Computed example of a mutant assay.
Amino acid sequence: MTQIFAHRGSSGTRPENTMIAFYEAEKNMADGIELDVQLSKDGKIVIIHDQKVDRTTDGKGFVKDFTLDELQKLDAGYRFQSGKYPAKIPTLEQFLSWFKRTEMICNIELKTTSVTNHELEEKVIGLIQKYDLDDRIIISSFNHYAIVYSYRLAPHIETAPLFMEGLYMPWVYAESIKAKAIHPHYKVAPKELIQISEKEGIKVRPFTVNKEKDLKMYMEIGASAVISDYPALARKVKDQL
């Protein structure tokens, strides 16, 4: 059965990457949550997608130039539905302490561009192990150096490369970097690619699948999961099938 992952939480209905979006995902019976992490100026792991705070908060500037205290003074719900849902930028630790009590799985996307600085990977894996969540976490990134490094640090934690372009035989590529899954953008995840990958033992979780017809198609062909901004819609489609 295809699992439903809430993309940045239930980000179609609540401010993305906030605890209220994650609570909403659980309420909508998502099987998993996808979120994004990066480091603050003082080296704390915070949950936010962009390199800058401008798009989602009432602040301006790069995440890496703010301390955790400064980031948590911002309103992470400021630009969503005219600020209807005020929220703070959460830390990964805050999220994991809540998440541990749920039944869900979590896809942590590493927002890093470095091929030599692995501070983020080391800190994220340290926290996953602190909360004893190794078997409920998937680490993904567009930076494939970061996921290979993560695999070497903790080979038992599942990894998955993210990609936006068509890759030749991605299941072979995934195996070559010891990843157990691939997370392609839905536009580069045709039916055949998913069927072959799954048959070859590589799970496919396309993102960001928000249309009913696409959700239905991926569920019918047996993708391991869909990553959607609208977990409630995905659940409705799944229940109908």
Rank of each mutant, 00 (worst) to 15 (best):
I157M: 06
E24T: 10
L71R: 03
I177D: 10
V115R: 11
K191A: 02
I177F: 05
I157W: 14
I128W: 01
E212N: 08
W98F: 02
L153Q: 12
R235Q: 13
H183L: 05
D31I: 04
Q51D: 15
I105P: 03
Y218I: 12
Y145G: 12
L74T: 00
A179P: 00
K213I: 08
K180I: 02
S150H: 02
P170W: 10
K199N: 15
N143M: 05
L167E: 04
D65I: 01
E198K: 00
T208L: 07
K213L: 15
G9C: 11
K213A: 15
I202E: 10
G201H: 12
V148T: 12
A6W: 12
D75Y: 11
P15T: 09
D135V: 06
K60C: 09
L127E: 13
E34L: 01
Y78V: 00
S141F: 05
Q51T: 12
Y23W: 09
G201R: 00
R8H: 08
Y173A: 06
V63H: 06
I202R: 02
G83D: 14
K211S: 07
E26P: 00
K123E: 10
K211P: 06
D135E: 14
E122F: 06
S197P: 15
D54P: 00
Y168G: 05
E192L: 13
K111R: 12
P86K: 01
L71W: 11
S141N: 04
E158L: 10
I20V: 10
I125C: 00
Y145E: 12
D36W: 02
A25D: 10
K187F: 08
T113I: 13
G12Y: 05
G12V: 13
L167K: 14
I128Q: 05
A30S: 13
K73Q: 15
I139E: 02
N17I: 13
D229P: 01
K236V: 08
K52E: 14
F62M: 15
T91W: 05
D134L: 14
V63L: 01
D36I: 04
K60W: 01
G77M: 06
M219C: 07
D229F: 06
A87G: 01
A181L: 08
T116S: 03
A225N: 14
Q240N: 11
S197A: 14
G77T: 14
I147N: 07
E212C: 07
I202G: 03
A223P: 12
R8I: 11
E200P: 03
V46I: 10
P161T: 06
G201T: 12
N107G: 04
R8A: 03
P184W: 11
A174P: 00
T91G: 03
E26Y: 11
K216E: 15
T67R: 15
Q3D: 12
E109F: 07
I139A: 04
I108R: 00
F99H: 09
T112L: 07
S197Q: 02
Y78G: 07
K178I: 00
V63R: 00
F62V: 01
T116H: 13
A174M: 00
Y218W: 13
P231I: 11
R235N: 09
E158T: 10
G126W: 05
E158Q: 04
W98C: 01
I137K: 14
E175I: 03
G222T: 09
M164I: 04
I125K: 05
N143S: 04
E158N: 07
L120M: 08
V53S: 09
I194T: 15
L110Q: 04
I105W: 02
A87D: 07
K238L: 14
N143V: 01
A179V: 04
V237A: 06
Q195Y: 12
L120V: 06
